[in-house]
Write a protein that binds this DNA or RNA. Structure first.
Lengths: 240, 240
DNA sequence: TAGATTGTTAATCGATTAACAATC
DNA sequence: TAGATTGTTAATCGATTAACAATC
């Protein structure tokens, strides 16, 4: 049995024994929280542009159209240096903490499978680097696309496994045709990849220790057109 | 004051007066619900492939790894023909109802602004038609891309406003460079567009009666890399 | 008829919002 | 010191899950 002594520090916050602290440093962050973090980051960068050095939870909440309480709670998950009562949070250190939390500062190498139009677009997109993703090479079965895009090599699919394994690549971007998706996924998983960013409409089967994130445009489109429908219907009613 | 008479029909379901029914037919569906609908659709199509004519909520729930209660509740939002106790739901009519709900059967015309690599990829992607989106033309300021892609014209940006207005286009796909995003959004809104599918990293300001759906790859990537991090850390702990 | 399964209502769980003691 | 604002705890709200009467 473990005895846990819990004391209170100033402001009544619970002091956690060091052994537990490591665990608590990795709280299960909900997806809702995760989706808000980039909003704060955007708002804070705008504030920095405007020359602001500090910001209160109320001010930041107003900017991103959220409740101040949710802002305070979310920020408490990422901040290293506490905010100061009456002053607020330091804009620059908050930006740094958010970027660390989101992993933008820790560049991750990735391979891309399927150098068709979408694959080429993603390989050519320089914005990923800003978010810490570095596509080191593309792989395809079509010799016509072999060469280089945006300074990154495009190689035969057969070379993927050894290359990914040698470089210990953990992330793969999947932009193959739908019917080739599962096969490509199996290949990258064999090569040691543990996270698949799936841009195909296929549903990928993968072992439990591999993350699959679907960039599901069908869902986005459905949400968009449903919202559009509601807006148009509302206006029609109001016109009457 | 309005008097509302509410009677009960078989199974104790409340009978709603006709006047209210129209309103109730448009319940505010949460995003969580919306994201699950395409899962059901996928599962049902797989079942149809396997020759199944009916499916119970428990069976479908198992397939999509969700709770049967949530399946029953979600389906109750879309079904036209009720399921039958002891039998379940008809697979084919459920597919139809879901596709109607998601708007896949009601094709919507759209314009695309910014025919760079990503824009070209989206114009060339035939999968959108499956989901009811028809990109009728692309617009750009760069004369080098004028012509046609996938049978769709690419025209000068200057022609967008009159074309969109003439054809009463309500949806625009934004694939311009980040710094051109707000300007492009303003243009399409002037042309009468009411829904913007934003693939840029820019945050678009738009009037209340215009929907903006961000295809925010930064968020997706952050979620993916966070999950990857958790998996790798867990394994590290277990290896010790 | 008996039992499986529906649609819906009630109970539970988690996330959001409000309130507040601590404090700069 | 007085008041603004923090971090956190308590109250509220909504979504998920379980339970159940209706019924094929």
């Amino acid at each position: 049995m473990t005895t846990t002594t819990t004391t209170l520090n100033r402001r009544g916050r619970a002091e956690v024994p060091a052994a537990l602290e490591t665990r608590a440093a990795n709280p299960p962050v909900s997806l809702a929280v995760f989706n808000r973090m980039p909003l704060y980051l955007r708002g804070l960068k705008a504030l920095r542009e405007e020359g602001e050095l500090t910001v209160s939870s109320v001010a930041l909440a107003g900017r991103v159209a959220l409740n101040p309480s949710v802002v305070k709670k979310d920020l408490s998950l990422v901040i290293v240096n506490e905010g100061k009562p009456k002053v607020g949070y330091r804009v620059d250190s908050l930006i740094e903490d958010l970027e660390n939390f989101l992993g933008y500062n820790n560049t991750k190498d990735a391979v891309l499978v399927g150098v068709g139009r979408l694959g080429q677009a993603l390989m050519g997109y320089r914005g990923f680097e800003k978010y810490g993703l570095n596509i080191i090479a593309g792989f395809d079965t079509n010799p016509e696309v072999y060469g280089a895009i945006n300074g990154k090599k495009v190689l035969p699919l057969g070379k993927l496994e050894s290359a990914a394994r040698r470089l210990a690549i953990k992330i793969a971007v999947l932009t193959v045709p739908e019917e080739a998706a599962q096969g490509a996924a199996d290949t990258v998983i064999r090569a040691g990849v543990r996270a698949i960013w799936n841009f195909t409409a296929a549903q990928i089967r993968a072992p439990e220790n591999v993350v699959v994130k679907n960039e599901d445009m069908a869902v986005s489109l459905a949400v968009l057109s449903q919202q559009l429908k509601l807006i148009l219907e509302r206006e029609e009613r109001e016109e009457k």
